[in-house]
Design a protein around this nucleic acid. Structure first.
Lengths: 196, 196
DNA sequence: GTATATAATGACTGACTAGTCAGTCATTAT
DNA sequence: ATAATGACTGACTAGTCAGTCATTATATAC
């Protein structure tokens, strides 16, 4: 039964994404995920050949969700600046829902020298590039319309993603949570230097 | 013999910092660190009560080094903008030397809900605040001298640290390494928006 | 109603590693 | 020359968890 199979597989991925995002790869056990999904551990291994495979699938899911949000905002009306603001707030909400402290779920925290993590890295890279490219197009558009300065769109897109991460970092490490998404975005768009 | 004791303990921390930075907490074994230091595992436990204790000590060492670099630059001559540029490039060089892919070594990648990581978090937090405060003072100075806009110095300082992290992120995830520290800093200081 | 195929289970294994501790030995004190 | 010290060792224990597989349950076919 193909339908049922997809359903179980999807349920596992959904739970794996949430738990991996909350606890990270090493502190998450396959038993955790099986229990959360309501299946036995053996069932997980019917759909995924090993833990890394499941992790990779979870990351894939995560990026698909993120890319979905991105293109939705991209296709909605608004100036490039408005679109980027929407992207940031949507993404912040999504991650907040995941209740992850294990952030970008999580590229920078992994040692790429091991085979496993290289595999994960190569699964992430194309997705990340797709995100960068989408944002890059919006920025190019903004440059064309005279809204943005003539900067390297790829670099600015990348930096924009880092800025979004900075917002979370604020949330988790500054107990005084007066720091708001808008303030950080304001800094991103207007910079620190005084205008001359 | 007090002298010798300090030496062994310091050697262990030094190696632990390097290896934890390269592989992260979970993939690093105490045996790895002992072997790298040239002592038996038991020796490690003479100086540290457990693995987390050693990790915390390593993070402490890391922040002390970072804070040392910060205050050195702070006390040297230069405009606030020049100082911040120096801080960023120095820090990039330091991390590059560590050969870490396990970034800010590593706040955002840990699940704070566990006791262990809460302990680590509380060890990090004061150090991080000290870093933010130092940078914050430089920014305040820049605002006073009319170099920077009137922004929240704490927020801008925090965002500056995130910007430095963004530079590494670039290095590790963009195979085309045309992206340079200066370009990212330029975006930080001047923002994306066109000046009106 | 029986047979076959497919899906799911969970007890079990074995590799791995944090942490222990009885014993060693070079150095220092008497 | 003898005794005391304590830094250091590494084999060992105990716990964890990824991955397996013989067994059971469920669905489908005839």
């Amino acid at each position: 039964m193909r339908k049922k199979e997809l359903k179980t597989r999807d349920k596992i991925i959904k739970n794996a994404l949430r738990i991996f995002a909350q606890k990270g790869f090493f502190r998450t056990t396959v038993d955790d995920i099986a229990e959360a999904t309501g299946v036995a551990k053996g069932t997980v291994y019917l759909y995924f050949s090993n833990k890394e495979d499941l992790y990779t699938a979870s990351i894939d899911e995560h990026f698909n969700i993120a890319l979905g949000m991105l293109s939705e905002v991209d296709q909605s009306p608004g100036t490039p600046g408005e679109k980027m603001n929407k992207i940031a707030t949507d993404y912040v909400n999504y991650i907040t829902d995941l209740r992850t402290t294990y952030l970008p779920f999580s590229f920078e925290s992994m040692n790429l020298s091991s085979k496993t993590l290289k595999k994960i890295h190569s699964a992430i890279e194309p997705k990340l590039h797709e995100m960068v490219n989408t944002i890059s197009r919006i920025i190019k558009d903004g440059i064309g319309h005279g809204e943005f300065r003539r900067v390297d769109p790829q670099l600015a897109a990348f930096y924009f993603l880092s800025t979004i991460r900075a917002i979370f970092f604020n949330h988790f490490y500054v107990t005084n949570d007066s720091i708001k998404t808008e303030s950080v975005l304001e800094l991103f768009f207007d910079g620190l230097n005084k205008r001359r």
